[in-house]
């Protein structure tokens, strides 16, 4: 399998290690991790930040891309569920295809869950970055397909929430289909006499 692997020849990977204040640096020895990242093949720049997601951190990424002519970016910080879009945008702003970015989670999956095992957490962070860099070597630029959005909305459920959502969208000028299971809209709200906190009628 390994011999089949093809990776671009001219790899220039930048690794950005985030302290996340003390969220990561309080457990993981980020300096040691950054130093380790420098030893990895194809890594040409390593930057450590207090908060990589903040503007100064993002500016560092953009500067490093330009200064070191990076063609792959690895950020070791929090879960991609939060900041993957942030960093994809960031590298795109620096002129790199957003799919040449890879994220390594050393917070939710490392520093926060191994708070009493600092050394082992540091080793784990190194392993995860090594894995992220290995994946980054094989990243390719991708072009996202753009699809049109049909200019209409479906609201399922005609209780108070569905009614309000339908009215707001309709008032904004959009076509709305409101589907209600029962013979009338109103939902549970319609069966309530007075409602708090204003103590007025529900209908």
């Amino acid at each position: 399998m390994t011999d089949e692997m093809k990776k671009p020849d001219d790899l220039r990977i930048g690794v950005f290690v985030c302290d996340c204040g003390l969220n990561i640096a309080g457990t993981v020895d980020c300096r040691a991790v950054a130093e380790y990242a420098e030893t990895l093949d194809d890594v040409v720049a390593v930057v450590r930040n207090k908060y990589t997601c903040a503007d100064p951190g993002q500016n560092e990424i953009k500067r490093a891309i330009e200064e070191h002519n990076l063609n792959r970016v690895v950020v070791a910080s929090c879960t991609p569920k939060i900041h993957e879009p942030t960093f994809r945008n960031c590298v795109a702003e620096a002129g790199l295809n957003p799919y040449l970015f890879e994220m390594v989670n050393i917070r939710e999956h490392c520093s926060w869950v191994h708070q009493r095992e600092k050394e082992k957490a540091t080793e784990k962070a190194k392993d995860l970055i090594r894995s992220g860099v290995a994946r980054a070597r094989f990243l390719e630029p991708q072009i996202e397909e753009e699809v049109p959005v049909t200019k209409a909305a479906l609201v399922i459920g005609g209780g108070i929430a569905g009614i309000q959502a339908a009215l707001d969208l309709a008032d904004a000028g959009h076509k709305v289909y409101l589907v209600e299971k029962e013979p009338s809209i109103g939902g549970i709200m319609a069966a309530i006499d007075k409602t708090y906190p204003t103590m007025d009628c529900s209908i």
Binding site: V147, A166, V176
Partner: peptide, 23 residues
């Protein structure tokens, strides 16, 4: 809701099938 020109109300109705993706 009943009289809004932009709203088509299907009461006593259910979603029978739904396919597709964003947009």
């Amino acid at each position: 809701v009943g009289r809004h020109p932009n709203i088509t109300l299907y009461s006593y109705s259910e979603v029978d099938a739904l396919t597709g993706f964003v947009g």
